[in-house]
Simulated assay, not measured.
Amino acid sequence: MVLNFATSKVEAERTVAEIVAAGGSAVAVQADVADEFAVARLFDTAEQTYGGIDVVVNSAGIVVHAPIAELDLADLDRVHRTNVRGTFVVDQQAARRVRPGGAIVNISSTTPKLSLPTYSAYAASKAAVDAITLILARELGERDITVNCRARGHRYRPSSTARTSRPSPGWRRCRR
């Protein structure tokens, strides 16, 4: 397993040590998922270390909470750089390199459908992840590559003045 990390080197090395202690094989590689050259090097490492790529789990993502009227556009750009561009860059390399019969899994969220206050930047980015996933699934179906997204449910507890009901938690799957 090749484990990518952006900034948490200590955590990545701890995870690698746990995998190795359990009898597995793993290496940690630092790469900004929105940097196409860093991601290409990440995929190069996976191919050189393991002889090919069968599964990619694309879980990088960040969230910034702010009402739309107050959201700093630099924060919007940062969320979309990681969550949208990062998903696209990783999926682009995965589409080129995952072997037939393999799988790509993008991590999404239920927030695009929930209209949660302060989640606009994140929800918009995860709606884009859903769209990218569905299109990539159609593009790679003939190569027998499965493309899914996993959307963890979100529990929202509105304040007494909110006009939104609490959605039920759960998992949603987008697939071909």
Rank of each mutant, 00 (worst) to 15 (best):
D75L: 02
T164K: 15
G52V: 07
T146P: 03
V29T: 05
A127V: 03
S120M: 12
C174M: 13
I104R: 00
V27E: 12
G23I: 08
S159D: 15
A40T: 12
A69L: 14
I145G: 01
R97M: 00
I104P: 03
V79R: 02
V39C: 05
A26W: 12
I53Y: 04
T49A: 07
V33A: 11
T45Q: 12
D44W: 02
S25E: 15
P117T: 03
D54L: 02
V90R: 01
L71S: 09
T49I: 05
G51T: 08
N83T: 08
A95Q: 01
A12S: 09
Y119N: 10
A31P: 07
R173M: 15
Q30N: 05
V98I: 14
R81L: 11
S25H: 13
T164H: 11
I145D: 02
K113A: 15
A6S: 14
L140I: 01
N106F: 09
R163P: 09
K126A: 05
A121M: 05
V57A: 03
S168C: 12
P158L: 08
G51H: 08
R166F: 01
V89L: 07
A38M: 14
R166I: 03
A151N: 14
L3S: 04
S59W: 00
G170A: 03
V2M: 04
A38P: 04
V20S: 08
T82F: 01
T7H: 13
T110G: 09
A60G: 04
S108H: 04
N106L: 10
E142C: 11
A74G: 12
A60L: 03
R143G: 07
A131W: 10
V16G: 07
A137Y: 07
A34D: 04
G24D: 06
I62V: 11
Q93E: 15
I68L: 13
L42F: 02
V89T: 10
S125W: 03
Q92T: 11
P112S: 02
Y156S: 06
